[in-house]
Design a protein around this nucleic acid. Structure first.
Length: 495
RNA sequence: GCUCGGUUAGUCAAGCGGUAAAGACGCUGGCCUUUCACGCCAGAGGCACGGGUUCGACUCCCGUACCGAGUACCA
């Protein structure tokens, strides 16, 4: 049965040319780990930097690993990260479909084409991994390798199960170029006749990738460095078809520690997990971008980058060859910087759910509380434990009134609170400025340093040693009545 | 085992044959101050090892060590 050459011509005709085209091609495993997210980011950046096209392709050829809702999670994550795609399963495009299982027929046809061109062959061997695993199975001696096309076809027609394998030359070397790693040469005899088309008729990742990348006009193939050693085989495939070889960009992995990649198995956080831990999307992206890429030139010292700035500054030159260890401490630092850089309004909005988790009293000003928190939290999830004293005065020990640096003892505190109650109870304007000025004035009148007065007041109104904000801010937020009530409780405690 | 890759402080990293070897996180100390933070200042800490090449190597070459990846009808 002759091949329908027209089919291939039509497929070729659809391929866009001229612009940079990159693709993010995840498997729908239901989990966006950090390395994956970073690859998506770099892929997006390469496209955007060049004013090119960013494509999303779903690689679901492994039927045994289908996960419900996994594709939706990918859409959601990309959208949340603003890594917008120009073509993909949900938005369509000139080289649709963008889901591999929907391209099934294509792979079979191209596999057959490669067989006809002498770069692949039908293999009828049983699935006995044992002989290959033992290491002494000689693929080159496999009789399937030298079957004539007619013989093979006859067996296929007879219904015999088969796979299609790539026919790797047994002599010579293959050199490929990677944008990050440079030229890499390997001896062909170290390459194996990998399976291209599986017994179930679906392509292997390695094959589907080459076909799709070509048919979709991908100019830069971005992927993890674990594929580095397969690259020569890809080259041979491209050459076998007579296709132009794309630019390879192999990214080194994101590690959990010196020995292990980040992985779900070991409980390393996914993008979602980090979000739930109170990290901001922008901070995550910024941090992750720098984990494997660094700016050069005048901006070599810049650390904070918006997505737009990254797209402008990104270059392959700055990519690192070595693995990078994910450091949650540094991510935390970025998150803190992003939190502080927010407008008070935005911060208040972001912090609201975390504040309201604990502070139910609607009379307490959300924005005032948020203002205290902005410089004092690194992650939004730090918030609840910091604001627990607003609704209810916690139980506390009189020991808290003792503070050396403020020159405060329980005896001193008693005097201070007595004075403060008198002063604050009679104020008729309850603003921070008013409270501040009267307390400072009071300290001056009592001839004590500010801290000596402020310390016991803060302890009495908050009931804890460490609080966001000082006495003045807390009193102001609590309101006059509650402030005085708590000061009196403090005084009672002091006997 | 074999093949390929990597190696600048605890971590991310700049460096591209001549530097006092950037910067950031973290750490330590100090200042500020109404607690804690923020902010500011200062400090400790590094080119894996051994050979070459060179007038001169973190930078180039070769080994060694260590780490990683691949060696699937998984991606």
């Amino acid at each position: 049965m002759a091949l329908d050459m027209k089919y291939f011509e039509e497929m070729e005709a659809k391929i866009p040319h001229g612009k940079v085209r990159t693709r993010f091609a995840p498997s729908p495993t239901g989990y966006m780990h950090i390395g994956n997210l970073r690859t998506a980011l770099y892929t997006w950046l390469i496209a955007r930097n060049a004013g090119g096209t960013f494509i999303l392709r779903i690689e679901d050829t492994d039927q045994t690993r289908q996960v419900e809702g996994a594709t939706e999670l990918i859409y959601k994550t990309l959208a949340e990260c603003h890594l917008d795609h120009d073509e993909g399963p949900d938005v369509g495009g000139p080289v649709a479909p963008y889901i591999q299982t929907e391209r099934r027929d294509t792979y079979g046809k191209y596999a057959r084409l490669l067989v006809e061109r002498g770069h692949a062959y039908y293999c009828f061997c049983e699935k006995t991994e044992s002989e290959e695993d033992s290491g002494d199975f000689n693929r080159a001696a496999d009789p399937c390798r030298s079957l004539s096309l007619e013989e093979a076809q006859a067996r296929v027609d007879a219904g015999e199960p088969y796979v299609i394998r790539q026919k790797i030359p047994q002599e010579g070397t293959t050199t490929f170029h990677d944008a990050i790693f440079g030229d890499i040469t390997v001896e062909n005899k170290t390459l194996d006749d990998q399976v291209l088309l599986k017994r179930d008729g679906l392509p292997t990742y390695n094959f589907a990738n080459v076909i799709d990348d070509h048919l979709m006009g991908i100019t830069h193939v971005v992927r993890g460095s674990e594929y580095l050693s397969s690259a020569p085989k890809y080259n041979l495939l491209y050459e076998g078809f007579g296709w132009e070889i794309p630019t390879y960009v192999h990214c080194s992995p994101v590690m959990r520690d010196a020995k292990h990649k980040m992985s779900k198995r070991h409980g390393d956080p996914s993008y979602e997990d980090l979000r739930n831990q109170g990290f901001l999307t922008d901070a995550i992206l910024n941090y992750v971008a720098l984990l494997g890429w660094s700016p050069r030139g005048e901006i070599a010292e810049q650390e904070v980058f918006s997505l737009e700035e990254l797209a402008k500054a990104f270059d392959l030159e700055g990519m690192s060859k070595s693995p990078a260890i994910f450091d949650i401490e540094k991510l935390t630092h970025f998150n803190a910087m992003y939190l502080r850089a927010m407008s008070p309004e935005d911060f208040s909005k972001a912090a609201e759910p975390y504040i309201r988790q604990i502070v139910k009293d609607e009379r307490l000003s959300l924005s005032d509380i948020a203002a205290l928190l902005q410089a004092r939290c690194e992650r939004l999830t730090d918030i609840p434990e910091k604001v627990d004293f607003f609704d209810h005065l916690p139980e506390y020990s009189v020991d808290l009134f003792t503070n050396k640096k403020s020159k405060c003892t329980p005896e001193v505190a008693k005097d201070m609170l007595t004075a403060a109650i008198g002063m604050l109870g009679n104020l008729n304007t309850w603003t921070q400025e008013m409270i501040h000025d009267s307390l400072v004035g009071l300290a001056e009148g009592l001839e004590v340093k500010n801290a000596t007065l402020m310390w016991p007041v803060r302890i009495a109104v908050a009931g804890k040693a460490v609080t966001p904000g000082g006495a003045v801010e807390i009193c102001q937020i609590l309101g006059q009545e509650e402030t005085v009530r708590r000061l009196k409780i403090g005084l009672e405690k002091l006997g």
